[in-house]
Design a protein around this nucleic acid. Sequence first.
RNA 1: GGUGAUGUAGCUCAGUCGGUCAGAGCGAUGGAUUCAUAACCCAUAGGUCGGUGGUUCAAUUCCACCCAUCACCA
Length: 703
Amino acid sequence: MPRKILVTSALPYANGAIHLGHLVEYIQTDIWVRFQKMRGNECWYVCADDTHGTPIMLRAEKEGLTPEALIERVQREHTRDFAGFHVGFDNYYTTHSPETRACANEIYRRLQAAGLIETRTIEQYYDPLKEMFLPDRFIKGECPKCAAPDQYGDNCEQCGSAYTANELRNPYSAVSGARPELRQSEHYFFRLSDARCQAFLRRWTQGEGRLQSEAANKLQEWLGPPGENHLTDWDISRDAPYFGFEIPDAPGKYFYVWLDAPIGYMGAFRNLCARSGIDFDEYWRADSMTELYHFIGKDILYFHALFWPAELEHAGYRTPSKVFAHGFLTVDGAKMSKSRGTFITAESYLAQGLDPEWLRYYYAAKLSASMEDIDLNLDDFIARVNADLVGKLVNLASRSAGFISQRFAGQLCTCDESLRALQAIGEKQAAIAEHYEAREFGKAMREIMALADLANQYVDSVKPWEMAKQPGRESELQQACSNTLNLFRRLIILLKPVLPALAAKVESFFNVAPFTWDDVRSVLAAGHAIRPYRHLMTRVDKKQIAALVEANRESLTTIAPPAAPQKHAEQQEKAAAVAVAQAAVATANGGAHLTLDEFMRVDLRIAQIREARQVEGADKLVQLLLDLGPLGTRQVFAGIKTAYDPARLVGRLTVVVANLAPRKMRFGLSEGMILAASDPDGTTPGIFLLAPDAGAQPGMRVK
RNA sequence: GGUGAUGUAGCUCAGUCGGUCAGAGCGAUGGAUUCAUAACCCAUAGGUCGGUGGUUCAAUUCCACCCAUCACCA
């Protein structure tokens, strides 16, 4: 009997573009969902934009839009990006919907009836100019511990200490610059500290297979040892002005993210049900026999494994069957970085003409069921996609189809089902299915590629090209090519969850109905006619990747938020708040202060001068070849000719700005800047090159 | 600072519930081949399995500590 499954991915915040980090999750989820559907299960995949909160409100204001207009535009962009990567949602909705509002109100009422909602008066900073209460991240001031200036209202980036916004010295509003006043306000809390919640969560989090083992450990830590209660109540309200849902019977109070974002999963599904006749209650009632899975980033585990199930349980709904957390994406071993050009948006990837299935395959090859981060190594990406997808897989069709089309009018003969390679695929099918089911996509890809190796070995062993040259071996040739195409067909079926567009092209090439998982067991009948072969996939060109990185590189002079690898829900709101606050502060103080974050974006490195020579036609420039150790070598033009003889520079160590945008000069490309001191007034003449103390090695970071 | 995770060949990663498991793919080198998008096939890698100590007949695999990286800290 088919399973009934509801799957969600985390809701992206409606304040930014989808990037390669987000796509790890959506591609992971999509592969899993496509696999379930191929097996004949009833599986629904819903998601939505998370649209509420102060950052959205302020950004809309800044752009001169209504919040509604802003979130509508962002939703269109997100929908386009996801579709571009073949992420096949059954519904991609918005939390700013009547369905989500109805669900939020209902859950709130039920929690209230259960005695789990209480109000408390809290003291909070208020911006008298903007006439609004300020979230912690929108208040800045001096750190109460180390007196560092311009620190946010929750913790100090200088000394790392945590505190409350009320402890900041000389606080100011990051929105208006005004000095905030402490005011009292009544807030609504969900009583997560209630004994009922704790008892439920201790049981729920230890449920069989509910969470990955690393996640379960983490939850133990959060819950505290038995007998202790580490859970605290959660503030679920915000004061007007706020973009969100007003709390029923509480004018001027709005639901904070906890009480509307994940409920967006329900809202999106309810909307789908209304359109397609699915029974909402069958999936959400407390005794539901259906399965519910949330794919999330590890950053929002706390929320999805504690707050959300407690909320559902005590509002009389079913709780998630399992929560699947994944790690973050790094690019070339480091956090995505705008200055390095590795903060790559989905849109730019597609705009550069890169094939979305390259990325889907690469992610699949790297993904496992664990919470470990995965690395997108750009060189490895090129090598892997070209070798596996083009060299091994697509090549099977490419090297057989020509013979079938030209010599046999496109007709296949009976496939030899006793073929070892063909049987091997049948034997591995169940194991591969288990890998997909367990989200061990990397293992599945390794198995499939090993099978593709067998297929290529088969072709090599029978040598169809020799048969083609010897008269009288026509039937042998047809047999060899029919066998190869059947091998290819089976491999494509196994890869269809990962490569849906390629699979569709192959279905068309073979002139057959869409593949299902069980089709692996069959072969194409004798006499079946295929269509002419056209290239199914092109190779990745190094230049395309270089262009992609260049297109995403942002110069240091632009005010930009620090690169957030992947953030959702509340985390996203924080990141968005940081961005807004930074922009506001930069405007407010004319850039007088530099935050540590901003400074750290300047990548200073020790460099050794390998070569130095005069530049013909330039009276100030010296052309240098710098050795940055592990970072390789750079060509840099420096305006130090008046003070230094090139010959005496060779071998010296100095400091270079390694992530300065390369600049094209008349004499060539300059890929960095070396640091030197000089008197701006010219009172003291000369240029003085910086040099590290003895022991520094090329490539060392300076900070 | 606390907690969790990771650290295996040039690169990306498997793997070992302690003893023929030190592995794969890519890259590189040599060979073969020419059907195929210079693809495919065969052969070749002497990496102290992060460091130090401990437990053991035996540790890369267990324990402790240390170092590095990453994440989380409501």
